[in-house]
C-alpha cells in the first residue's frame, strides 16, 4: 500500500511538471520533454499499478510486443508521409488548395500569411 501511495504521489508530481514545462517555451525540446514525462508516467502505472514488476514475464513480453508493433506502424507510415513527393513527380497543390483558388475566396487570402502558404509545402 505504501508503494501505491508513493507511485500515486510521483504521478501527480510528474503531471504538474509536464504542465509547468509546457507553459515555458523550450523550443525544440517541448515535444520530446512532454513525451518523455508521459512515457515515465505510463511506466510507473504499468510497473506498479498493473504490477508488471512482479508479474509473469510473458505478460511483459506481450506488452512490449504491442509497443513494438505500434512503433512499426508509426515509423513505416512516416517513411512515406515524411518523404512524400521525393520523386518530384507529384504536384504540391492539394485538392483543398485548388478549391480555395477556384472559389477565389477572401477567406483563403486572409490567412495565407500564417498557414496555408506554408502548410502544403511540407508535402
Amino acid at each position: 500500500m505504501r508503494t501505491l501511495v508513493g507511485v500515486f504521489s510521483g504521478l501527480i508530481v510528474l503531471t504538474i511538471l509536464t504542465v509547468v514545462t509546457s507553459r515555458i517555451d523550450l523550443g525544440i525540446l517541448n515535444v520530446p520533454l512532454a513525451l518523455t514525462i508521459a512515457i515515465g508516467k505510463a511506466s510507473l502505472v504499468v510497473l506498479f499499478f498493473m504490477a508488471l514488476k512482479w508479474d509473469n514475464r510473458v505478460n511483459g513480453i506481450v506488452l512490449l510486443l504491442g509497443v513494438l508493433f505500434v512503433s512499426i506502424f508509426l515509423i513505416f507510415t512516416l517513411f512515406d508521409t515524411a518523404f512524400r513527393g521525393d520523386l518530384s513527380n507529384v504536384d504540391d497543390t492539394t485538392i483543398m488548395d485548388m478549391e480555395r483558388e477556384m472559389t477565389g475566396g477572401d477567406a483563403a487570402a486572409d490567412h495565407s500569411e500564417d498557414g496555408s502558404a506554408a502548410a502544403p509545402a511540407d508535402h
Binding site: 506502424f73 508509426l74 507510415t77 512516416l78 508521409t81 515524411a82 500564417d114 498557414g115 506554408a118 502548410a119 511540407d122 508535402h123
Partner: peptide, 12 residues
C-alpha cells in the same frame, strides 16, 4: 499515427 502524420505535416 493519424495525429503524428498530420502533426509532422502541419506542426504550426
Amino acid at each position: 499515427v493519424a495525429y503524428t502524420v498530420y502533426r509532422v505535416w502541419h506542426p504550426e
